[in-house]
Design a binder for these strands. Structure first.
Length: 895
RNA sequence: GGGCGCGUAGCUCAGCUGGUUUAGAGCGCUACCCUUACAAGGUAGAUGUCGUAGGUUCGAAUCCUACCGCGCCCACCA
């Protein structure tokens, strides 16, 4: 025992502790335990990803909840897993292949997928391992992956059900297209970023006018940010209310360079104020134009290929990249005197959320889910508080999105993911590319949705071709709360653990995931997927920038764990994240947790070395308790209550600081010091061990490793694991006999005396004498009975305590509450210094007293304020008057 | 264009269902201490017109309005 080092070394204990838990199967959830259930849905991290600070924060919060509930006696399920992250993972593997000089098309679909699975086998367990070193007490036996057989089955079932219910369709729409990933993206996957671009003004000649002289007569000026899309223009639109263009009705314009004839159309959606009030219409490359094109029956000319290079409709520009083409077109327009000017223009441009390439709005045939029918219930459950957001403001964000919901583009032109379970009959559809076959209603002939058919139900042909696309990764994630529990089977897990209790996630994932899970839960399970949604802040660096690999400002949680340990990481990050506020991190912030862990370590070391061998932490009989004992026990009870209250309200930092305050500033600073000179050794040893044990329990959800480690070193054979020890009860039923205020008075006296000593430069180890003038006889007795505290902790000898104590000559004085303290200083007293000290204090107090008096003399205050507030104010006044009188007497006695 | 968050000690932030806090914590700073658990420590101390200006109220860091600075999210102004 004596060999325990004075520095806590997490690296030496954490791994072993985790093995201990796993060996005992402590994180396994049993749906048949009969206990109340508590379950959490883990936001599945990317299978090939690695742990970043956001994960660390997110999973620490979840682990706190799970450990807390487990100790409270709930049967807890924290189901871990990873998602296949279609685009991201495919990109990673493609990059690896590129290093070998290969493209995915060189391998072919099957071979490529083999490569991805291989990659997944090699790298997929990294994040799981990292979550374990963070201390996460997930039920690892139930680890799920979105492409597991069970989850894939759920995806197919859901696809079929949506199809049969008329909620799926495949058709031509403008979608967000990433030319680098060569796939469609959902609206949420296109991140809009404000950029400084150019707005180009271009002349479109009026047909039949050879000269380009008079604006609006000979030509119309059109403004655009993407001149390259003019290759796909089919019209120019103006507002019907715009007098400038009314005369153009029935006229034709000529598309610059290509010379195609364009109609002039009149549409309400054109804003006459913007640009020139004339808008070029490109239905295949812009969502607004697409809508307009549909209204006016315009042709849709798609002028770009999948890589956003200009296709054969682009004439001489064929083969050029879109941005290259932009430059070339501007140049050609200038040559032809059709270019007017370019001005700087701020606008939001979509970027691919995986590779950050500028997204191209592009006409394309894709699968969509009709969302409006799913949104209704999802709005209701939040409005009715059946699903609650913490902090509540996020429900507004959620509702705003839900009320304006748009259809979800779910098909992706990549290979890694759940392939769309739709087969088309080659014979029924002839040679058409199956991608181009529209599916606008359920039951279309020649199409089979669900399992691979052996033949076409219409013509009997055996030549069926599966849709080449895969589904959006979120199409499997949105089923996570029930697909992981075995849905569509009616499993015991679903019965017992669904709906789950809490979802902990980051703000940026509300639309991607939270909202969609609520919709899918309600639609497929008929019930909400979770009751509480806790939205934590975003982890940023010290300057407020979001941490990201590409910016190079990340702090790797694994580095932090190596340096200070998981517990320190967890405690630090939790203590700086107040509800829903962003977390600003720097390496120094982890010192808080490291120091706290070390403090706990050393306090435990002391308790176990000096007393723990015999003491078992039993509460001594009430008669054996000192005021200090009762004070620490009562304070512990208060802390239990505070921690519970904070955790119930998802105020993790509050819970953490309550524990910090109690353990450090009450248990260590005071009780441990007091214990060193306690008379009843046996009683105090038991209380030391008892309080330590309760502290370990309360702290365990926050710092699981160190607390379990200390727990395992505490005496007592049948302790078992702290991880499954019972959570402390709020109160231990101690009689309220005034011990707590008495102890607080003693603490106040000690502080005052220390203060005097510091002011007069008396070393803390040096002894002084002290006399006490009290208001009441009880206080004098209290001091007399507890003189040992003053002597040991303030380093003073108590000479006298009573209501008639006289101030000795050549002494300085202090005040604690209403008790006056005199400390004789013999010849060393510097009267001027003392006068100055008292004078300053007196000034402060007189000022404050004046403000109280003013308040009390205000008739409105006395008549309108609640009686207890007035009483308090009067009590304050009394206290200050006495203090001032005392100080004046002190001053007078110096004369 | 809508919506949201933040501006409190040198730094990072709590507090904000108005009055028990003469505004708190951690870090940093100052002084004294290697006191037999802990120097990653102990004791004591200094530091704030609570962004600005109004308003509501007996009373506002806390509620309302406007403004000034930051930051974020959503949105089809080309």
């Amino acid at each position: 025992m004596k060999d325990i080092p004075t520095k806590y070394s997490p690296a030496e204990v954490e791994g072993g502790i985790y093995k201990l838990w796993e060996k005992n199967g402590l994180n396994r959830a049993r749906p048949d335990s009969g206990k109340p259930s508590y379950s959490i849905v883990i936001p599945p991290p990317n299978v090939t990803g690695i742990l970043h600070m956001g994960h660390a924060l997110n999973n620490t919060i979840q682990d706190i909840l799970i450990r807390w509930k487990r100790m409270q006696g709930h049967e807890t399920l924290w189901m871990p897993g990873t998602d296949h992250a279609g685009i991201a993972t495919q990109n990673v593997v493609e990059r690896k292949l590129a290093g070998e000089g290969l493209k995915r098309t060189d391998l072919g679909r099957d071979k490529f997928l083999e490569e991805v699975w291989k990659w997944k086998e090699e790298h997929g367990s990294t994040i799981i391992r990292q979550l374990k070193s963070l201390g996460c007490s997930c039920d690892w036996d139930r680890t799920r992956f979105t492409m597991d057989e069970g989850l894939s089955n759920a995806v197919r079932k859901v696809f079929v059900k949506l199809y049969e219910d008329g909620l799926l369709y495949k058709g031509d729409y403008i979608i967000n297209w990433c030319p680098r990933c060569t796939t469609a993206l959902s609206d949420e996957e296109a991140e809009h970023r404000e950029v400084l671009g150019m707005l180009y003004y271009i002349k479109y000649p009026v047909k039949g006018r050879e000269k380009l002289e008079k604006a609006n007569e000979d030509f119309v000026v059109v403004a655009t940010t993407r001149p390259e899309t003019m290759l796909g223009d089919v019209a120019v639109a103006v507002s019907p209310k715009d007098p400038r263009y009314r005369h153009l009705e029935g006229k034709k314009l000529l598309l610059p360079i290509l010379g195609r004839e364009l109609d002039v159309i009149f549409d309400e959606s054109v804003d006459p104020e913007f640009g020139t009030g004339a808008l070029k219409v490109t239905p295949a490359h812009d969502p607004v134009d697409f809508e307009m094109g549909s209204r006016h029956g315009l042709e849709r000319l798609n002028v770009m290929g999948p890589d956003a290079a200009i296709n054969d409709l682009g004439g001489d520009y064929e083969g050029m990249d879109r941005f290259e083409c932009r430059e070339a077109i501007i140049e050609d327009l200038k040559q032809r005197k059709l270019f007017v000017r370019a001005e700087e223009h701020h606008h939001a441009v979509g970027h691919c959320y995986r590779c950050h390439t500028v997204v191209e709005p592009r006409l394309s045939k894709q699968w969509f889910v009709r969302m409006k029918p799913l949104a209704g219930e999802a709005i209701k459950v939040v409005k009715e508080d059946r699903v609650r957001f913490y902090p509540p403001r996020w429900s507004k964000v959620y509702l705003n999105w839900m009320e304006n919901i748009r259809d979800w583009c779910i098909s992706r032109q990549i290979w890694w993911g759940h392939r769309i379970p739709v087969w088309y009959c080659r014979d029924c559809f002839g040679s058409a590319d199956v991608r181009d076959i529209a599916v606008d209603a359920p039951g279309k002939a020649g199409i089979v949705v669900g399992e691979a058919p052996s033949e076409c139900p219409v013509c009997g042909s055996a030549s069926m071709e599966q849709d080449p696309d895969v589904l959006d990764t979120w199409f499997s994630s949105w089923l996570w709360p029930f697909s992981t529990m075995g849905w569509p089977e009616k499993t015991g897990e679903l019965e017992y653990f669904y709906p789950t209790d809490a979802l902990v996630t980051a703000q940026e994932i509300i639309f991607f995931w939270v909202a969609r899970m609520i919709m899918s839960g309600l639609y497929f399970m008929g019930d909400i997927p979770f009751r509480d949604v806790y939205i934590h802040g975003t982890v940023r660096d010290a300057t407020g920038t979001k941490m990201s690999k590409s910016l190079g400002n990340v702090i790797d949680p694994m580095d932090v764990i190596r340096e200070v340990g998981s517990d320190a990481l967890r405690y630090s990050i939790i203590s700086i994240t107040s509800q829903g506020q962003d977390v600003f991190l720097s390496k120094e912030k982890f010192e808080t947790g490291r120091n706290f862990a070390n403090k706990l370590w050393n306090a435990s070391r002391y308790v176990l070395m000096s007393s723990g061998e015999k003491a078992r932490g039993e509460l001594p009989g009430e008669n054996a308790l000192t005021i200090a004992d009762k004070w620490i026990l009562s304070s512990l009870a208060g802390t239990v209550g505070a921690v519970n209250e904070s955790l119930e309200a998802y105020r993790f930092n509050d819970a953490a600081s309550s524990l910090y305050e109690f353990i450090w500033h009450k248990y260590c600073d005071w009780y441990l010091e007091i214990s060193k000179f306690a008379e009843n050794r046996e009683a105090v040893d038991n209380i030391l061990v008892l309080v330590l044990g309760e502290c370990l329990k309360l702290l365990h959800p926050f710092m699981p490793f160190i607390t379990e480690n200390i727990w395992q070193n505490m005496p007592g054979k049948d302790r078992g694991c702290l991880m499954t020890a019972g959570w402390p009860e709020p109160l231990r039923g101690l009689a309220d006999d005034g011990s707590v205020p008495s102890m607080e008075k003693i603490i106040g006296l000690i502080t005052s005396i220390r203060n005097v000593k510091a002011f007069w430069n008396i070393p803390n180890s040096g002894e002084v004498e002290a006399l006490f003038l009290t208001d009441t006889e009880e206080e004098a007795v209290l001091i007399g009975d507890n003189r040992i505290y003053l002597e040991k902790l303030a380093g003073c000898r108590v000479l006298e305590a009573g209501t008639a104590t006289e101030r000795p000559s050549r002494s300085v004085s202090a005040l604690s509450g209403k008790i006056r303290i005199f400390v004789p200083l013999g010849g060393s007293i510097d009267i001027d210094k003392e006068k100055d000290r008292i004078g300053k204090k007196l000034g402060e107090m007189e000022n404050y007293l004046k403000s109280i008096e003013k308040k009390l003399s205000n008739r409105s205050f006395v008549s309108k304020a609640p009686a207890e507030v007035v009483e308090k104010e009067k009590a304050k006044k009394d206290k200050f008057e006495i203090s001032i009188r005392n100080l004046k007497e002190n001053l007078a006695s110096l004369e």
